[in-house]
């Protein structure tokens, strides 16, 4: 019982991070019909940006103002939003209308660029101009901006009074922020005129422009939102683990890949699907880790992908493409 509760909580926490990242993949795919390979790097930079903000403002685990978490969160969301805007503008927009393979290769190029820019630390040439990159080539520990005492700590099973379920502030932060952002996005996409325009562009961009919708602007906004959500995931991830691997570490790509799997499982292009898919991937991973083996957690995720692709290739919430009459 204790194990069940703990695995559910971890699953929802990890899953909501996957969901936040998956949203960026799915929104960009929905509108431009291509997989933005650089998205996992935006997530990685989101984590590192929030770390850099802590360093810049002098926040440490022991000494930080109460609003520090909010500053780091919003700061890194803004930075990644700007980054996403720039990437789209400089790398993808010039290729609008080009064969999809060109865009895909460009996305991989952008991805490698971001990973390696993140690694630069004391490049002599750049240092001469006073440019220093904060990330470096080694893992770093991240200051925790929250209390580390459990909010709740209780034993479920009276036979094992020492096996406690712990609800940590960081778990509440992760789940609270992720669900708030998803609710906001849900409202934006399904409850506002801009969201309606986004859905129209995703169905048919040319006709959308005949309605007076500025398609380029909608694309920019999509990148900004997707990147900001990935940054939020990056910040939350840093808080949860309190350490970050260096920017070119394969772990980032693996996390991005799992989030991408979440998007596909939910039905790529479908916003609600990405949220559901993320939670599902998180739960499968954590339950597998708790009840089967911790070492095989990647296997569970990718097995789920295979099962979904076999039985419902359009994804759980995806619709088989409706042909236009």
């Amino acid at each position: 019982m204790t194990k069940l509760l703990q695995a559910s909580m971890d699953g929802v926490a990890v899953g909501s991070l996957y969901a936040l990242i998956a949203l960026g993949y799915t929104m960009v795919y929905g509108i431009l019909k291509f997989i933005n390979f650089a998205h996992s790097d935006v997530f990685m930079l989101g984590a590192w940006f929030s770390f850099a903000i802590c360093g810049f403002l002098g926040y440490t685990t022991a000494d930080h103002p109460v609003y520090a978490a909010l500053v780091a969160l919003i700061g890194s969301m803004a930075m990644c939003g700007a980054l996403g805007f720039t990437i789209e503008r400089l790398a993808y927009r010039p290729l609008r209308g080009a064969p999809r393979i060109n865009v895909l290769i460009t996305a991989i190029g952008v991805s490698l660029l971001l990973e390696n820019v993140g690694q630069l630390n004391s490049n002599k040439f750049l240092a001469e101009y006073g440019i220093k990159f904060p990330f470096g080539t080694r893992p770093t520990s991240v200051p925790l901006l929250l209390p580390d005492q459990p909010l709740l700590s209780f034993a479920l099973d009276s036979a094992h009074p020492n096996t406690l379920v712990n609800v940590l502030p960081v778990d509440v932060l992760v789940i609270g922020v992720a669900f708030t952002l998803m609710a906001l996005l849900q409202y934006l996409v399904f409850g506002t005129s801009l969201g309606r325009a986004m859905r129209a562009v995703s169905y048919d961009a040319k006709t959308a422009s005949l309605m007076g919708i500025d398609v380029d602007r909608v694309v920019s906004i999509t990148f900004v939102i997707g990147s900001a959500l990935a940054a939020a995931a990056g910040f939350l991830y840093g808080q949860k683990l309190q350490s970050l691997r260096q920017s070119a570490d394969g772990l980032w790509v693996l996390l991005g890949l799992k989030a991408f799997v979440a998007a596909v499982v939910g039905g790529v292009g479908n916003v609600r699907g990405a949220m559901a898919g993320g939670l599902m991937i998180g739960l499968v991973e954590q339950f597998g880790a708790a009840y089967l083996s911790t070492n095989l957690r990647d296997l569970y995720v990718f097995s789920l992908l295979i099962v979904v692709l076999l039985f419902k290739p359009e994804g759980l919430l995806g619709k088989a493409v409706v042909e236009k009459v």
Binding site: R196, A200, D204, K206, T207, L210, V322, K324, V325
Partner: peptide
């Protein structure tokens, strides 16, 4: 009103 109607079927 374009050729082939172009209604947004998902809306």
């Amino acid at each position: 009103s374009p050729e082939g109607r172009g209604v947004f079927a998902n809306l």
